[in-house]
Simulated assay, not measured.
Amino acid sequence: MTQLYEQNEKQRKEAIEFLTLYKNETALTDDWLRNRLVEIEQDQTYIPTTEELIFGARIAWRNSNRCIGRLFWNSLQVFDERQLETEDEIYQALLQHIEYATNGGKIRPTITVFKPNCIRIWNYQLIRYAGYETENGIVGDPDSIQLTKVCEDLGWKGEGTPFDVLPLVIQIGNNKPALYNIPKEYVLEVAIRHPQYEELSRLNLKWYAVPMVSNMKLSVGGIEFHAAPFNGWYMGTEIGARNFADVNRYNLLPTVAEIMDLDTKSNISLWKDRALVELNLAILHSFKADGVSIVDHHTAAQQFELFEQQEEAADRQVTGNWSWLIPPISPATTHIFHKPIENLIKKPNYFYQKNPF
Rank of each mutant, 00 (worst) to 15 (best):
Q7S: 14
Q11E: 07
K13M: 11
E14V: 10
I16R: 01
I16E: 04
L19F: 06
K23W: 05
N24M: 10
W32V: 09
L37P: 13
E39Y: 14
E41K: 05
Q42I: 10
Y46G: 13
I47D: 11
T49V: 07
T49W: 01
T50K: 08
E51H: 01
F55W: 01
R66M: 01
R66W: 03
G69C: 05
L71C: 09
L76P: 03
V78C: 08
E81W: 03
R82T: 15
D88I: 13
D88A: 15
I90H: 00
Q92G: 11
A93L: 07
A93S: 13
L95C: 11
I98T: 10
A101S: 12
T102W: 00
R108F: 06
R108L: 06
T110N: 05
V113R: 02
C118H: 01
I121R: 01
W122H: 11
W122F: 15
Q125R: 06
Y129C: 11
Y132E: 00
Y132P: 13
T134E: 02
T134R: 05
T134C: 09
P142Q: 04
Q146T: 13
T148N: 02
K149G: 12
K149I: 12
C151T: 11
D153E: 15
G155W: 04
E159K: 03
G160W: 01
P162Q: 00
V165I: 15
L166E: 06
Q171L: 08
G173P: 00
P177L: 04
A178V: 07
L179C: 07
Y180G: 12
Y186K: 06
V187M: 10
E189D: 14
I192G: 07
R193K: 15
Y197D: 00
E199D: 15
S201K: 09
W207P: 03
V210C: 11
M212D: 06
G222M: 02
E224N: 15
N231I: 00
Y234S: 03
Y234K: 02
M235C: 08
G240M: 02
N243R: 12
V247M: 10
N248L: 13
N248A: 12
R249H: 14
L252E: 06
L252P: 11
T255G: 11
E258M: 00
M260Y: 13
T264F: 05
S269V: 11
K272R: 12
D273H: 02
L276Q: 06
L276K: 00
E278I: 06
I283G: 00
L284V: 11
A289W: 02
D290H: 06
G291T: 05
G291A: 08
H298W: 05
H298C: 08
A300R: 01
A300W: 00
A301T: 01
L306A: 14
L306T: 15
Q310M: 08
A313D: 08
Q317A: 07
V318H: 13
V318D: 05
W322C: 03
W324L: 01
I326T: 13
I326M: 05
I329F: 07
T334S: 03
H335W: 15
K339M: 07
I341W: 04
E342C: 08
N343K: 05
L344Q: 13
Y352A: 14
K354F: 04
